[in-house]
Design a protein around this nucleic acid. Structure first.
Lengths: 238, 238
DNA sequence: GACGATCTCGAACGGTGTGCGAGTGCTTTG
DNA sequence: CAAAGCACTCGCACACCGTTCGAGATCGTC
């Protein structure tokens, strides 16, 4: 370079340990997460991701073995966002409720999760830590030992199942590009035609569309979670 | 043609209405279902499907607008396989239990379902009929009217959530190519290393791998379903 | 200045879903 | 019997995908 002395100073003043400016796995992961959260699973391609980072597509493969591995990383990142309260603070029931809501919120923040989470094992570090804290929470409730796993996994399954369906609905609304209440109204009209010969479904659709989308989905979620926890509570030894 | 007279007779003797032998939407659907059930979602491509039917890939597009539409068709087919008992026969609780087991069995028969069912609405004819019969079943239980939808959908969500995770496990075992018990043993070893610093998870893994894969998954499923139904039952007016 | 490690990346391979338009066989009409 | 029109098939091509390979650039270290 022409101005070698200044360049020397510059580069010396910057952290001398870090070599040239380079891609990192963390950088890739956060960029990928951003694309997933805004454009969904179908919107994430290695080329697009690389473009967002201003690099060549195949450069990514030096930092990440495979697209699937990258997604594994991101899934585990999501598991890391979930709150599992200490049972000493709020007690088991309240803790489980909080856990459920936190799990739901995380999935709503990352609506691509249901599409991928059922196709691979969850054995990343955050998944492990989540499981451990969950076992502590449910262990403190007083279930017979062999039921602790069962209780926890039934709550997780309920929450993930409900919120997966919820995400599907919300994504449809979002992708339609229309205002949410207008979309609900459209849906009602359409469903009423489709459900012409099904009086029960007719009424059901009408009931569901009588409230806000968010309100309806939340009520739905809470109702089932409460019922499940009610049922589980009868198993604890007092 | 050379033998025009005979040809005339031949063609006349065959149903004159049906024209030449041709592809049909049903044919395509059943072939696609077969591929999905044996090779999974990733194993289904339009070219492979066409090859299986002995036709050109793009011929399919005359009968089916799009691959996604085809999958919608197949999903609705699955909904059609599910049993929703008449509440007069077995009562609500037993009926709901049966419904849950039937739903689980259907998903286990079509393990590709969780990967796709959360990405689209279910408004096909079979989905509608299923919903209607479900509402009848849960309606007969004696829930307050506004809770009928909630109760039914919580059961569906629980079952689908649980069985989605179950399918993920089973598919992993299947794809490993090893005998099931050997795979479980491998999993136990691996999980114990991964969960090194998590004593609760350690014990949990050991508990889970102490029984058959099938036995463990079934117990898990039944436990949560029973608990949920217990919780729901307190809502019915006696 | 040379070497080895680290990192980037263009070209290419074998796949994907699907639009287009030409072609083929069958039925119906003149 | 010919001609027209419909129902259906399908090869080609396009734009995209994940990923491999190997050549190159840039660095710290001897």
């Amino acid at each position: 370079m022409l101005d070698r002395v200044n360049d020397w100073i510059w580069t010396r003043d910057r952290k001398p340990a870090s070599a040239r400016e380079t891609l990192s796995r963390e950088q890739i992961a956060t960029a990928a997460m951003a694309i997933l959260d805004t454009e969904g699973l179908a919107g994430l391609s290695m080329r697009k991701l690389a473009a967002k980072l201003g690099s060549g597509a195949t450069s990514l493969y030096w930092h990440v073995p495979t697209k699937d591995d990258l997604i594994d990383l991101l899934i585990d990142e999501v598991w890391g966002e979930i709150d599992v309260p200490d049972p000493d603070l709020a007690g088991w029931r309240a803790g489980a409720l909080l856990f459920g809501h936190s799990l739901r919120a995380a999935v709503l923040r990352h609506p691509w999760l249901p599409e991928v989470m059922y196709t691979r094992p969850s054995i990343g570090p955050n998944a492990m830590a989540l499981g451990e804290r969950g076992l502590v929470l449910f262990g403190a409730a007083g279930f017979p030992e062999h039921e602790v796993d069962l209780a926890m996994s039934s709550v997780m399954s309920y929450v993930l199942g409900t919120v997966s369906a919820e995400v599907a609905t919300r994504e449809m609304a979002r992708k339609s590009g229309r205002p949410e209440d207008a979309w609900v109204e459209d849906l009602r009209k359409q469903a009423e035609t489709v459900a012409e010969n099904y009086p029960g479904m007719q009424k059901s659709v009408r009931r569901r569309t009588a409230v806000t989308l968010d309100e309806g989905l939340t009520t739905n979620f809470v109702f089932g979670l409460d019922a499940l926890l009610d049922g589980l509570e009868t198993h604890v030894k007092k």
